[in-house]
Every structure is written in C-alpha cells, then in structure tokens.
Design a protein around this nucleic acid. Structure first.
Lengths: 336, 336
DNA sequence: CTGAAAGCGCTAACAC
DNA sequence: GTGTTAGCGCTTTCAG
C-alpha cells in the first residue's frame, strides 16, 4: 500500500503538494501536478480515508439506522437516502438494530467514534429518547425519519394520525362498526399516533371500542395471524367485521387467518394495512392500505441531515409531516 | 470530546495505562484501573475509532455489498451476516450498488481506504471480475456470496444448476413440454448456470427450446409482466404452457400477466420461481419455487471471511455449494 | 508558488 | 507495574 510519501518521493515534490493536487485545494504548477498524477497512477495509490478522517474529522459517510432490514418498508427509504446523499458526495451505510432495546446505543457509538458524520434514525423507541437527547446536546447531526418523537429534534415523518383516522373512517363509511386495530411494537410513538387516529374516528362515529379489538400484531405475519385467529373466535356480537393492521405484512397474516377460518375477505372481514408495499398491489392480494411516502421521507431526511452537517451552527429543529394517502383496493370491499 | 489524554490527566496516569485498561491488554493495578474507569465515566469518554484504526489498521467492520436492497432476497442474507459477525465482535455495514456496472469499484475502495477490513460481495457481474482479482492479489480478504464466479476466489453459493434442472424437470414430470425460462440480468453467472440446468433437463427429455422462450425478465415484476404478456400472445403451437422465472418477484409478474389475459394459473400456465421469498407462501399466492438457503449462505460466507481476516496467510480458496430445494406449491398444478 | 513540519488520537515497543 | 514516546497517513499552517 503506497502512502502519500511514496507519491511525493516518486514525483519529486513534497507531501503537501501531493495533498494539494489530490484535494484540489490550492494552485499547483502544471508540471508538478502532472508528475504527481502520473505517480498516483503508476503506484495505484488510494488515499487512506482513515488517516484523512483523523485529520479533518470528516468521513463523508452517513449512517442509516433501521429497525428491521427484513421489513420491505425500508429499502425504498434507504434508496432515497443513498441517491440524495450521493449527489452531495456522501456515502450511506446501513445498520440494522432489530428493534431490540439497547441496540441503538451501539449504533450511535459510530458517531462518537468518528466513523460516521451524521445519523438518520428510523427507529427511535421511546426508550431511546435519552440517548438521542444526549447526542443532540453534544452537537451531533441527527435526524429522525418515519418516527414521531416526543422531543425536540429534526424529523421527517408521515401524518400517522390522519392515516389511522382515514383508515377507520373509510371502514365506517362502508358500514362497519366493529373495527379492530392490530397494534405494532410497544413504545413506538408511530403506533400510538395511528391508534389515536383510529380512536378518534370511532369516537366521532359514536362507536365503542372493545378492549379485545386492540391486540398486538407487531406488524408481522405470524403474530398477526395468531391474533386475528383469536379475534375471529370472539362471540358473534363482539367479533369485528373489519380490521386495520399497523403494517401490510401483518394485514396479510390477518387475511390468511380469515382464509384458514373459511371466512371471506372482504365480505366477512374487511382488512386495511399500512405502508402500501409492493405486494399490496398484486392481483391476488389487492390490499387496501394507507400509503406512506417512503421515498420522500428518505429524501427529505437526508437533505436536512446534510444541511445540518454543513452548517453545524444551525440549531433549528424542523419537523416535517408529509401527507398519507388511502389506497382503496379490494380487501375492504370498496367498489368504484 | 474528551481524548485519551484527558482521561490520563484526570486519572493521574499515563495515556498508555488508559489504553491498557480500555483494551485489557496488560496488567494494571486495581487502584489505577479503578481511577481510569471512573474518569471514563465522568467524562463520558468514547475512544476514537478512527485514530485507533489508523494505528492498528483494523476497523472491525466488514462490508456487505448487495446488488439491490429492494430485493427481498438480501435481508435474510444480511441478517445472517450480522449475527455471525457480531459473535466475533465485528460490525456489518451494508452497501447497495443497484447492480450498476462500475459501482463495484466504488464499494471496493472502502477496503483500500481502510474503513473496512473485509468484503462480502453478492454482486459480482462478470464485468467486475478484473477488479476482484486485483484486490485479491493485493491480499484483501473477500468472499463471494450467492455468486458463482469464473475465477479462483472463496465462494459460498447454492447449487444453481440443480435448481434450474429440478424446476424444469418437475414441470416435465407434470406433463409440460413447452416450458419458458425468463432470464435475469446479463453477465450474471448465476443466471447462466440456472439456465444451463433448465436446458439440460429439456435436452434429457428430448424437448426442443424455442428462442422465444428465453426472454429477459430481469427477475423484476414489471419486465416479467411484459415479457410474459408477449409469451402468451405467441401462436398456440408455440405458446408455453409453463414458465420458470429466475426470481419469485418476476414469477409474480408473470402470474399477474396470465391473470390479466384471463388465463388460469396453473391450468393454462404453470409457474415456478426462484428463492422462496416470504410472499411465495401466502395463501393467495402459493408459488412453487426453488428455495435458496439464504441464511446459511450469509452465515457461511461471513464465517469464512472472518477466518481469512484472522489468518491473512490463508490463501486457500474454498468454494462451497449448498443444496437447493424445490418447494412444491400450487402454481405449477402439483397435487399431493 | 512550494515545502517543512506539527499534530489529529491512539497503540505498543522500549525503557525504567 | 507503569510511563515515555515514536509514529500510523494525512492536511494545513507558517515560513520562505
């Protein structure tokens, strides 16, 4: 591995000059520049980013912290981050926390350790708030994406309340009164906010919500399948005729549960999901769902992060809420 | 940001001692150790990984290069890598190349720049081979996962030939003779190998393969949908009665095309995919598919990489081929 | 216009 | 048992 010294020697200039041509950071005479460039080619030299990072404290990488890489929600968000970051010369690195409590601190240490310059966090459980606040206080650039935080921090998210509200309302308009809402992971403000929207719609319609109608499906297939089974075994007068799941994948679990019970969707059970993942639109699925503007969330969050990295004194806290859209398909029995 | 010097001063020891307690790398008397630890707590000190990396040339991070983060194939592989790496104290960082030609070099520069110690590459197009060989020659630890390379390099992959062969053979046993095979991205040895397996099965059965039966569906939904449409518009005597797609997502595109043509799957068109993604098993999908051992591929690849990183003189090239499994479901008309 | 050299924070060889 | 210090590869100030 050649170093800057090797290049300097071979080109017969100082290391300073080499550095200047590499970074284009001050005038260098054409002849010297040429010699340096040739030496770099010949020795196949690549500057050591670690050494540079130590010196200038800029790694040009931002880290995207995601909760569950297996959740198809995130790839689009990640792609948007990458594209946006690339335009500004930044590289995005993805880190997966599995939504385990206590894994965020580990991800966060990347910042303190100096290997990354900024963080886009998509996974702030309420329990993580103290860590984030600490970091913020220390002046690190962080933005939350797709999380509604109970703190003063830059955030880009969707209108989750409205999502829960519209989903429930749509079902109400279709004539449902017994509507279940399968919740997600605990301590997630996103879950809380969507639930609030649902409750508001029910309240406005004058419908009472039974305790049993709010099981925890964790937005995953298995758990939602099981919980839906339980829901469908409720006595007739308590059994919901419609169900909202906090995620599309979970909604599919519920649909399969209904199917295994010999019930028809949407006739016996109407189902609505959240996210509008790719598979929601398959001919054989046609899931009604609340679309999240995933790409835009990633993009806006990245833009804001880069802004903050460039201008460290910018201490404003922007909170952006993007509109959601109810995509009406077949699983709720809606017909044009 | 406190540095090791601040800790040393506060604990009234040398920086060496601080380093020794942090890394547990030689005996330190209990009192001093205690003082150091207290100072670390009090100042909320985190060692700078960049500086350490510069010194010891080990970042303890390995990078996973994937072709397309939106392809649900990769998350499982990535999870396996993470789990395996974590056990050994390594962190995994994911980088997405979008299977663009020329994006691998960029990913690779991470190695040369010293920010990562080793690479798991899931995306070696044939056109990337020269880069990999160069790197290998320079002694960097790299292993290929889920790629069959035409070069001498550590590799963990599935038996793609067998996959193509079994898929075709299954259809042949079910009575099909006109079987199409929708291919993936160009220059992918994986695609080539699976195609070979399919051709072999057809040959053994004595069936001729029409040129038109080998369209490029790129394993994606849209393209596969279009190409399948075209296939279904072929004159009756040329129209395939069965189709294999190089990926499950592509298979879904084909199924939806059939559906839009008013054809029934599997009666008018039998369909087999590759991968056995989560959605292949949905009640409303039930896609027959060739399961890839994704988790195991990630695990074995990571193990091998770490082995090589620990023992830089190990120049053996292991090539592991894991068995695939044909998962028989409903889209090919198979019945117990 | 260019070069010498200090120093980023850390580790580890060497000295005591 | 512990401390001193050189040096990892780079950038950038300061001097010329």
């Amino acid at each position: 591995m050649p170093t800057i010294k090797d290049i300097a020697k071979r080109a017969n200039v100082s290391t300073a000059t080499v550095s200047y041509v590499i970074n284009n950071t001050r005038y260098v005479s054409p002849e010297k520049r040429e010699r340096v460039e040739r030496a770099i080619k010949e020795l196949n030299y690549v500057p050591n980013a670690v050494a540079r990072g130590l010196r200038v404290r800029r790694s040009k990488v931002i880290s995207l912290i995601i909760a569950d890489i297996a959740n198809p929600f995130y790839p689009d968000l990640a792609k948007a981050c990458e594209e946006t970051a690339k335009k500004e010369g930044y590289t995005v690195t993805i880190m997966n926390t599995n939504d385990e409590q206590g894994s965020l601190p580990k991800a966060i240490s990347q910042l303190r350790e100096g290997t990354v310059e900024g963080l886009i966090v998509t996974t702030a459980l309420n329990t993580d708030v103290p860590f984030l606040e600490q970091l913020l206080q220390e002046g690190y650039p962080i933005v939350l994406a797709h999380r509604c935080p109970e703190m003063d921090i830059d955030t880009v998210m969707a209108d989750n309340f409205q999502g829960g509200f519209e989903a429930a309302n749509h079902l109400i308009e279709l004539g449902h009164a017994k509507i279940a809402f399968m919740r997600g992971v605990q301590h997630s403000p996103i879950d809380a906010t969507r639930t609030l929207g649902y409750k508001k719609a029910m309240e406005l319609a004058g419908f009472h919500i039974l305790e049993e109608w709010l099981p925890t499906g964790l937005a995953n297939y298995e758990k939602s399948y099981q919980e839906c089974m339980r829901l469908l075994e409720l006595p007739k007068d308590k059994r919901p005729t419609a169900l909202i799941n906090i995620g599309d994948i979970g909604a599919l679990g519920a649909i399969d549960a209904a199917s295994d019970k010999g019930l028809s969707v949407p006739d016996d059970l109407a189902v609505i999901g959240f996210d509008d993942l790719f598979l929601a639109n398959l001919r054989s699925v046609q899931l009604t769902t609340v679309r999240m503007p995933r790409f835009e969330i990633g993009q806006r969050a990245t833009e804001r992060l880069i802004e903050k990295m460039k201008n460290r004194t910018d201490s404003r806290k922007l909170q952006v809420t993007l509109p959601v859209e109810l995509i009406k398909r077949k699983t709720c029995g809606w017909k044009k």
